[in-house]
Amino acid sequence: MKPFKSFILFSFGMLTFTACSDDEPAPEPINEEEIITTFTATFVPQGGGTTITLQSRDLDGDGPNPPEVTVSGDFAENAIYDGTIVLLNETETPAEDITTEVEEEDEEHQFFYTVGSSLNANLEYANFDGNGNPLGTAFTMTTTTASSGTIAFTLRHEPLKPNSGLADAGGETDLAVTFSVNIQ
């Protein structure tokens, strides 16, 4: 009989005891270490002119808000631009530069450029991994006549390298952003 009684006492004791220990420190907040919040492509025209930036910024990561997409201006006709891509994680202070991580793991990453058919522009890779396959954080863009359309940038993690494009690259998408631009 005794064990039963002490058991009941014990169980209630345990419940009440654990129930009052509410003064523990709050868990620390977690800032996503891996997330890319900001994509910026900077286009510097060869021989001078207006630098154009395309930016997609999503400060709440996989939160409900869509990325904010900005295009600083229109591209010039018949121009050659030197392009660079910068990836940031702005949930951390100071913002973490993720481009360097991608460039360190160049064999496991590749950017792809998809130019809408109505846009008279062409993008070429300007940097490559250790095996001579494209990496694409740097590129050149050549424009011809005035037109409007889209440029999409896709970053794949662990794609098949070499490949003939997005269709057979496989891997998984780390980033996919689309911009509507004009050439004037």
């Binding site: 009941i8 169980s11 209630f12 345990m14 419940l15 654990t18 868990p27 620390e28 977690i30 800032n31 996503e32 270490e33 891996e34």
Partner: peptide
């Protein structure tokens, strides 16, 4: 019969990913 139970969940913050299941 009677049953009493106490449970505690601790999500390790070292993951660098926001907690899927909270403390």
């Amino acid at each position: 019969g009677l049953v009493g139970r106490y449970q505690e969940n601790f999500p390790n913050p070292a993951t660098g990913v926001r907690r899927l299941i909270p403390d």
